[in-house]
Amino acid sequence: MTKRHTRMFFVGGTLLFAAIFLGMTIDSHRQFATLTNADQITPAVSAGKDVWHKGNCINCHTLLGEGAYYAPDLTKITDQRGEPYLTAFLKDPSQFYSEKQHRRLMPNPKLSEEEIAQVIAFLGWVAKIDNQGWPPRPILVSGGTFPGTGEAEGSAAGVAASDSPVALGQELFRSTPPGCASCHSLVAGVNLAGPSLAGLASEAARIIASPEYQGNATTPEEFIRESIVEPSVYLVPGAMYSAAGRSFMPDNYREILEPVQVENLVAYLMTLR
């Protein structure tokens, strides 16, 4: 083997594999439109992409797993948080997280109402990209389960322990969608994007009896059902949970969930006393 042979190995190998790479690139271009739902890139999505770049968001967050590692991944954030929540969050993140508790905080991005709507539209488009099913399980901003800290343990997400309504409801609670567990913890005092659901059944009875309650529920079951399908009827106090009489909890569970699924959730949540 002489230098001439190894030079041929270098030049030939490089050209051959560059050609294969270009071929794969051309084929990918044929598929990008379908994989990324390019027809849904509206002017708002495009403008949102510019907001994303202008805010230098990627140098703290990751998106599609790319970026810096200092702040949560936002690939599927619009599946986990509704638009009212994200809007209120982007107006003033310090209302939602405390630097004292988490040791880091997002600085106020100082966006206009329009820019906020655009960047949420952009993130909504990103969440629908067909990216080989990544992440393999939801990446939560905060909360989740530490074994041994008093939260319900046992079956893994996606597998119900039995077909009793309580077991099915518990499994549903941890699944995405609806993704209840990504906003509600079951530990007293651990408030995530939504309030803790620890002792919910007893809490529901107390709320119904209180003069602040204006809804139609007369039993804890009815209250929990109402809170799932019409979250704005009773608003838990706090600027991080609602604005202008509207709860940040998504209000489309009536459409997403089958009636029997709602009943299973109610059955499960009624066990939290």
């Binding site: 270098f10 594999f17 790479f21 990324t36 797993g65």
Partner: peptide
């Protein structure tokens, strides 16, 4: 030669989860 033979198509490890075939 080895750098390019592996490295050019190796770009793919940045592509896995961003919306490629």
């Amino acid at each position: 030669g080895l750098v390019f033979i592996a490295g050019i198509i190796g770009t793919a490890h940045h592509y896995y989860w961003v919306g490629v075939p």
